[in-house]
Design a protein around this nucleic acid. Structure first.
Length: 747
DNA sequence: ATCGATAGAGTTTTT
DNA sequence: CTCTATCGAT
């Protein structure tokens, strides 16, 4: 239906408006000037953004290269690009679509020299940043115990996101006074290594635009329209960037929802929504309240939770999907039971064909909670996909490989050098390295250049003859690669590096793990191959920049039909037919680290709201009676957020009844076998599957189920992989269940 | 260099 | 509990 050629004709405008509601139309029709779209969950904000760009291009004849669209994730940028391709065809390639960081990196590569930045700067991630902080602590002779590197880094990062330079850093206390000095040292280290950190990309760009009117003017002239997604998550530096860039033409189009602001701990400040109204008083403000995702029941639940928050734009979401199933709220005994309940429900839902596995998501507050769920899935042989475990670019072998390339790209980068200088082992031990560090510091050189001094001045440092020889071998080898970088493409460079350094043999040590790591390197090589046809002068820079700004490989195939396990944070922007939120307990949601602070609790509430509103049809809010943390089980209260949900929207179980069962289980009156007794076996198609050894229930047994209460076993039989029990429940009828979810009552 | 014991910390983490 | 970093011993 969206044939791009259609838009060559005159009726394009009508087509773009077709299917949009009145508020959405109003938003995209504005010819110019500031616009604030407050977009509730599921209100079609992506549609508004993409159609807005299309209207600018088709109706208002704005050249595509004069439009900038900013997103917060690379994924969102890619999706926007894909959707725009349909609306505006090849012109999409001229749009500046990307994250703030990517757009800024581009500006700094082009114009950063006017503020003294090297063109080949490397971008440091959190890991590198932490190394810098530790180095700064060492340099200033400070104790890591008193000045925890993580806390120091947070302070520095926060300062940068507020555009506070080391000179402006305010010492509110002795600790902060020291942090200020560390910040200064940290900056010096970054500069010495020819590197920028993530926050620098924003901060330096803002400072560049502030201090260099010619550069500012150039970008102001160029970008007639700037559009921003997830505006509620902008930090001060990002807001300032937008303010500077739009000072001239003021055509800033922002879309956001204060209720979905869940990154304030990273400097995001949803008060920028309010500030936008003040700074752009002429702004059109449009509320999108029509929800196209969830049932009315789910929206009512969401609203009952979020409306307790103060400081928010009051809005009332509505949907055409009146009614809908009541949500399910349950207390389970502990996380094992909780996980078992989830898998049980999933089997019930999918076997009755009311949904597919891929429609289901299980969400939790902390990554550690995925463990119990995973165990349960594995034990039952239900496949799943897990979002955000170890991220691709955080793997050791990937970081090593990239460190080699980054070092080749910019040999001043001591931190990349340190990562690879003895990996694989080449007889350059700690004492040699520290000797080299001292020499470099004394001569004010990069560590790499300091190696060049060794032949002429053998006695200037504490480095042994053997160490010196190893270093010179390393120098000769790396110089060869550095020479090659302007002659061969990225893949050839990577291959030469891997083979000549011996890193390939080092990683492929014959173990299975080694092969996995090698596979990852090949995956990276795949990514690199996309850059092989760029001119060699820029290919390496562009490749490294892209991988530095991307958190994960995007090849997480969407196609496979599997339930998704993910944190509430990771769930933002997604939708699922059925959503389970587990661990709806005090201390977990809201998290114990947040309960002191009112604002933090409000953020936890928003997190809960985000989770609820991901659901289209069915919602389960589960909490437990006991929760195991750090090894020991503790009693745990239901989340305060549950108390805000009207009973009329919730199906079933009385809290009192549930608590009685929990208490009796705790008293040991019921013996619970969580999992069937199994042994691993292989089925003929080679898949691993567990087999049950013997039935544990027989006709006449009294059993207990967390949802259905007490019942009597009618029949029990072994099936492939499990034990299937038919139970007559008091007042609930006859059900067929898997043994793992029944408790045998010993009389 | 590699192993093993030990201590300490453990929320979320778009870039 | 479990993961990680660090240190000391081989």
């Amino acid at each position: 239906m969206n044939d791009p050629t259609d838009f060559q004709k005159n009726d394009t405008y009508e087509k773009l408006l077709a299917g949009l509601n009145e508020a959405q139309r109003r938003a995209i029709e504005v010819p110019e000037g500031p616009v604030l779209v407050i977009a509730g969950p599921g209100s079609g904000k992506t549609r508004v953004l993409t159609h807005r760009v299309a209207v600018l291009v088709h109706q208002y004849k704005v050249p595509a290269y004069r439009i900038m669209a900013v997103t917060f994730t690379n994924k969102a940028a890619r999706e926007m690009r894909d959707r725009l391709k349909i609306l505006i065809g090849d012109q999409v390639n001229q749009l500046a679509i990307g994250t703030f960081h990517a757009n800024c990196a581009r500006i700094l590569r082009r114009d950063g020299q006017s503020m003294g930045l090297p063109a080949n700067f490397n971008i440091y991630d959190r890991d590198d940043q932490l190394r810098l902080v530790k180095q700064a602590l060492k340099d200033l002779n400070l104790d890591e115990k008193r000045f925890a590197p993580n806390a120091v880094l947070s302070s520095i990062s926060q300062a940068k996101s507020e555009l506070i330079t080391p000179g402006q850093y305010e010492a509110k206390s002795y600790w902060h006074e020291v942090a200020g000095r560390l910040y200064q040292r940290y900056e010096d280290l970054l500069a010495a290594n020819g590197a920028l950190d993530f926050d620098d990309l924003l901060m330096k760009t803002a400072l560049l635009l502030r201090q260099h009117p010619d550069v500012l003017n150039k970008y102001q002239q160029r970008y007639l329209h700037i559009l921003v997604d997830e505006f509620q998550d902008t930090n001060a530096a990002q807001y300032e960037l937008l303010r500077l860039l739009t000072a001239e033409n003021r055509s800033l189009f922002v879309v956001g929802d204060e209720d979905q602001s869940i990154y304030s701990w990273r400097g995001a400040d949803s008060r920028h929504v309010k500030r936008f109204r003040e700074d752009y008083p002429a702004a059109q403000v449009i509320l999108l309240e029509q929800n196209y995702r969830s049932t009315q029941t789910i929206l009512d639940v969401a609203n009952s939770v979020i409306s307790r928050n103060t400081q928010r734009t009051q809005k009332k979401l509505h949907t055409d999907r009146v009614g809908g199933m009541k949500i399910v709220s349950r207390e389970l005994y502990n996380e094992t039971e909780e996980a078992a309940f989830v898998v049980d429900e999933i089997e019930r839902l999918t076997s009755s064909k009311s949904c597919r596995l891929g429609d289901i998501a299980i969400m939790y507050r902390t990554n550690a909670q995925s463990r119990a769920i995973e165990d349960s899935f594995i034990a039952r042989g239900v496949p799943y996909k897990l979002v955000g475990a170890t991220r691709f670019y955080e793997r050791r072998e990937i970081k090593d490989t990239l460190a080699y390339l980054r070092f080749i790209h910019n040999p001043r980068d001591n931190f990349s050098l340190l990562r690879i200088i003895n990996v694989p082992p080449r007889a350059i031990g700690d004492s040699t390295v520290s000797g080299l560090g001292e020499l470099a510091a004394r001569r004010n050189l990069s560590m790499y250049d300091a190696i060049r001094l060794l032949p002429e001045n053998p006695s200037e440092s504490s480095i042994t003859t053997r160490g010196r020889k190893s270093l010179l071998d390393f120098l000769r080898f790396m110089d060869g690669l550095i020479d090659l970088k302007s002659q061969v493409n990225v893949v050839e460079l990577l291959d030469l590096m891997l083979v000549d350094s011996g890193y390939d043999r080092y990683i492929r040590d014959g173990t299975e793990e080694g092969e996995d790591r090698w596979e990852n390197i090949l995956e990276l090589r795949n990514v690199a191959s996309e850059y092989a046809y760029l001119p060699v002068e820029t290919a390496l820079t562009v490749f490294l920049e892209d991988v530095s700004l991307v958190s994960d490989v995007d090849n997480l195939t969407e196609s496979n039909d599997l339930p998704t396990l993910l944190t509430l944070h990771a769930a933002k922007g997604l939708e699922f037919g059925v959503v389970f939120i587990v661990g709806m307990n005090e201390g977990l949601l809201p998290h114990s680290r947040s309960t002191e602070d009112m604002d933090a609790v409000e953020e936890e509430r928003r997190l809960c709201y985000v989770g609820i509103t991901r659901s289209k049809d069915q919602l389960y809010l589960l909490h437990t009676f006991k929760r195991t943390q750090y090894g020991s089980a503790e009693f745990s209260e239901p989340s305060r957020f549950l108390k805000d949900i009207p009973k009329a929207l919730v199906e079933g179980q009385e809290q009192k009844e549930a608590r009685q069962i929990s208490l009796e289980m705790d008293a040991g009156r019921y013996i619970r076998r969580n999992m069937p007794v199994v042994y691993p076996a292989k089925t003929n198609d080679g898949q691993k599957k567990d087999r049950v050894l013997s039935p544990r229930f027989k006709a006449g047994d009294t059993v207990l189920h967390t949802a259905f209460g007490e019942g009597m076993v009618v029949e029990s039989r072994l099936t492939e992989g499990d034990e299937e029990v038919t139970v007559a429940f008091k007042g609930r009828g006859v059900k067929r269940l898997l043994a793992g979810y029944l408790i045998k009552v010993e009389r």
